[in-house]
Nucleic acid binder design. Structure first.
Lengths: 249, 249
DNA sequence: TGACATTAATTGTCATACAATATTATCATT
DNA sequence: AATGATAATATTGTATGACAATTAATGTCA
């Protein structure tokens, strides 16, 4: 166990949040009372209450007098909250399922986002996108930096689609990702000749998207993005077992 | 002003949350100290702290000793949190922009979700979808009930797509919607011969989706859903001015 | 049996005190 | 005068104790 950091109420919220999302307390169950939790976690009731308030804010629990803190049904959870997302991808298997579903969503959303961006991007935003692409070109030798700027490129496009919901989806998912990364820290991928080559390819595909956007050609931007995502999907060598994620009812 | 309900800390969180999202405190600003808020809102510091904890949980603020509670930059906000979503759609204009963007997202996401559902739905889930369709048929005369079951139909399909991210997106957005509804209460639409007819049409279009799913024809399910959403989009007579939502930087 | 009052467990709120933390001001040193 | 250490100070973080408000469970009476 690593050294715990942050305030006590933060630690308590993390601990209890993980327990709930991890299934140690099931929906419909009552958590121990504030007094009992206070005893168990060896913190004051004040701290326990503030932790529970955080969990309630994320829809995980609801406290009522006399009955105590109850785990809410899953449909009440703020599933896209970055903490909930991170707690949902604690072990390796869950994380891989999440990543798999994430790429699926990206392949659904981003091509259309690119189409919208082609129609709606302001000159300023176009320049922004071009700038992030230039940044990618510069760091083609550094895998980590490249990944970061890759993400920035896609974010800039979604931003230019002028749809806050899409943007929100990206931002939350990204936050959940880095949060779960911090758990799985061990940098994931190492650089090989193949991955280096893959980045060169990726660069060309990104350029195609950028060019289409510049010419305000929505259809071509859409196609280029489809192409890009499919290629990246394969190129990364997504060795997921593609196991079915049993639906959460 | 309606009669305020719920616990004091809940009320305080709502009040402060609305202030922040509404722009009364800007990102980078410091809120009044806990002591000052306690005085202003006329509640104990305990209550203020628990309210602030809720806002911190949603990424709106961050408190540090000696400096106080600071409004976080917007990219740190949990924009898809149902409360944040509701606070973001307080006035009519914001709500209409949100609804417009929501239909846009639906038209992007749901056709592909239908395609996935055609491939992945379990027999049980197919039955579920059929059941919600039957429920729609029964309540074709009641606008409100129809709308509810319409939503259930789409939710069942997304569920059957076996992608938790898509499901999460739908669920959060729906929660935000009902939450903002409670503000804008005044049932939105009234029944006219036209809208009644529109429901008949909608029924047929839904049936087409269902049939395609039953035959596991992903392509047709996709097309049927596109058709459905476009028609609904027009039929509802979406009289939005289609005003540009200025990008939130 | 069923309506109604009582009890008891638990959360909700308040007040107070002090510890921990981080900013700001002060002061000594060069 | 610039710099770095040090102290003062404002604010949040935590603990404790008390009581009010809420509500599930229980018991009582018609």
């Amino acid at each position: 166990m690593g050294v715990r950091v942050g305030t006590l109420s933060h630690q308590a919220a993390q601990e209890l949040g993980r327990r709930i999302v991890g299934g140690k307390y099931l929906p419909g169950d009552a958590l121990p009372s504030e007094a009992d939790l206070s005893a168990e976690l060896e913190v004051s009731r004040t701290v326990v209450r503030e932790a529970l308030k955080v969990l309630a804010a994320k829809g995980l629990i609801h406290s009522r007098p006399r009955v105590g803190p109850m785990v809410q049904p899953r449909h009440a959870w703020e599933r896209l909250d970055s903490d909930v997302l991170a707690w949902s991808t604690q072990d390796d298997k869950q994380l891989r399922v999440f990543l798999s579903q994430l790429t699926e969503v990206r392949r659904i959303v981003e091509p259309d986002a690119a189409r919208l961006a082609a129609m709606r991007a302001t000159p300023d935003e176009l320049e922004q996108i071009a700038a992030t692409f230039a940044a990618m070109e510069e760091t083609v030798t550094d895998p980590n930096a490249f990944m970061t700027r890759d993400l920035a490129f896609h974010e800039a496009i979604i931003r230019a689609s002028h749809n806050d919901l899409l943007l929100g989806l990206l931002l939350t998912v990204r936050k959940g990702l880095v949060a779960s990364r911090q758990v799985t820290t061990g940098t994931l991928r190492q650089d090989t000749p193949e991955t280096a080559h893959a980045r060169e390819i990726a660069l060309q595909l990104h350029r195609a998207v950028l060019d289409a956007l510049r010419e305000r050609d929505g259809q071509r931007a859409h196609e280029a993005m489809v192409h890009l995502l499919s290629t990246v999907h394969e190129a990364i060598g997504f060795m997921l077992d593609h196991e079915r994620s049993d639906a959460t009812r």
